[in-house]
């Protein structure tokens, strides 16, 4: 496992385990409802240069803006 700070630092194809979410409360609630909570696995399917990414989490695909991805901390699995 490699320690990294944010989901935003991941690249296309990376797998990531969420450890902490530091975002505005309403956005935290939204991510929670989608199942993006500490301990969950995220697969980065596509990522743009600006940081917007498509992830897979709990079987569903989500488009995630850079503003959300930078508030999600965790570790990247190699």
């Amino acid at each position: 496992m490699t320690q990294i700070k944010k989901l935003l630092d991941c690249q296309t194809g990376d797998r990531f385990t969420v450890s902490q979410i530091r975002l505005e409360e309403s956005l935290c609630h939204r991510l929670q409802a989608l199942g993006i909570v500490p301990g969950c696995q995220i697969h980065v399917l596509y990522k743009k240069r600006i940081g917007t990414m498509v992830i897979r989490c709990r079987g569903a695909r989500y488009a995630l803006g850079a503003g959300a991805a930078k508030g999600i901390a965790g570790v990247r699995a190699i």
Binding site: L27, L34, L64, G65
Partner: peptide
């Protein structure tokens, strides 16, 4: 107001 980032399900 802080711009809300994109969070959207892709079906």
């Amino acid at each position: 107001e802080k711009q809300a980032p994109l969070v959207m399900e892709l079906p």
